[in-house]
């Protein structure tokens, strides 16, 4: 099994075999990060550009560390949307970057589909580090790696994803990933934040958090953007937290050994209570560690072979 792709744009386009390959490879890379010398020469002389149009310390740092542990040169470019020169199209930006001969561009953008467009414009590999409400494939892969590490499997698990599904790329990527590996996924959130036709992605949907939690093996809490309140997606943070926040009492509906994930950064006391976030079943920090391993695996699989002509 080989990954024969130029780009990683989303989980939607990956087969179960490809996902498994990435996870298996990531398991090998976990070991590298445990060494005293956390660096392998694999991608020596390769250049990775981290092109971030949205602020994200966590994801950018994770990609940067992954690239550096592979001995690639990582260059960070942060672009605030407002500073983009008017009249310069995405195509122009892409061609300019390409002229610097990078081997890979990691892109984060607030507009869904931008990584797809970029991938069409450049010959190097493109990794989607989150595009609007579309996909965040490396996050889903690290979530799956974390669950696989703790549970030993993905197949047959029950997964609940709770929160603002409408605006969540993490939810979409995880729905594709977990269902493709044989888990059953239920999403739950207020009706204002359950997008129409979400079931077509392969999950079940409910507005009842307790129903979603019932007998579940994995609980994934999504970060709620507090400013959504202004657009009346929910009336108050207090009411949102009461209905869709995770606390110990609600967690009792899940299986006793259920694990808890959160893509971070967490709003303590809003979507997740501190005692749950810091509790024994919380894998939030494991996620961060696995994030580096997964991204190393993705770099290796995309850049570790000659480009097909």
């Amino acid at each position: 099994m080989r990954l024969k792709r130029k780009d990683l744009l989303g989980i939607e386009e990956l087969s179960a075999e490809e996902i498994t390959l990435i996870l298996t490879t990531a398991e090998s890379f976990r070991e590298v990060s445990e060494r005293e010398i956390k660096k392998v020469p694999t991608l020596r002389g390769r250049t990775v550009i981290n092109l971030f149009y949205e602020p994200s310390t966590r994801t950018r740092t994770s990609f940067e560390i992954a690239a550096k542990r592979m001995s690639a040169d990582a260059v960070n470019i942060s672009v605030s949307a407002s500073s983009v020169v008017k009249g310069e199209t995405l195509k122009d930006t892409a061609r300019n970057l390409e002229a610097m001969r990078p081997d890979c561009i990691v892109i984060r953008h607030a507009s869904a589909g931008t990584p797809h467009m970029l991938a069409g414009y450049v010959g190097c590999s493109v990794i989607n580090a989150g595009d609007g409400a579309h996909e965040h494939p490396s996050q889903a892969l690290l979530d799956m790696l974390t669950v696989k590490e703790k549970k030993g499997r993905i197949e047959g698990l029950k997964v609940a994803i709770i929160g603002d599904i409408t605006h969540s790329r993490v939810a979409r990527s995880n729905i594709y990933g977990f269902t493709r590996l044989g888990a059953s996924v239920t999403v739950a959130g207020p009706p204002t934040m359950l997008p129409p036709g979400i079931e077509a992605l392969g999950c079940k949907a409910t507005t009842n958090m307790e129903a979603a939690l019932k007998d579940t093996d994995v609980v994934m809490m999504l970060r709620i953007q507090l400013e959504r309140q202004k657009e009346s997606f929910f009336p108050t943070i207090r009411e949102y937290s009461r209905l869709y926040g995770l606390n110990e009492e609600k967690l009792r509906k899940a299986k006793p050994d259920a694990v808890i994930l959160h893509p971070g950064p967490i709003n303590r006391g809003v979507e997740i209570s501190s005692e749950v976030a810091d509790g024994p079943y919380s894998l939030i920090l494991d996620q961060v560690t696995n994030g580096v391993a997964v991204r190393m695996a993705v770099f290796y699989l995309l850049l570790g072979a000659a480009r097909e002509e």
């Binding site: 579309h134 036709g197 077509a200």
Partner: peptide
Amino acid sequence: NEGKVATRLGLKG
């Protein structure tokens, strides 16, 4: 258009 395609693509409908 708002609907399942927009939901899949993550675009506002």
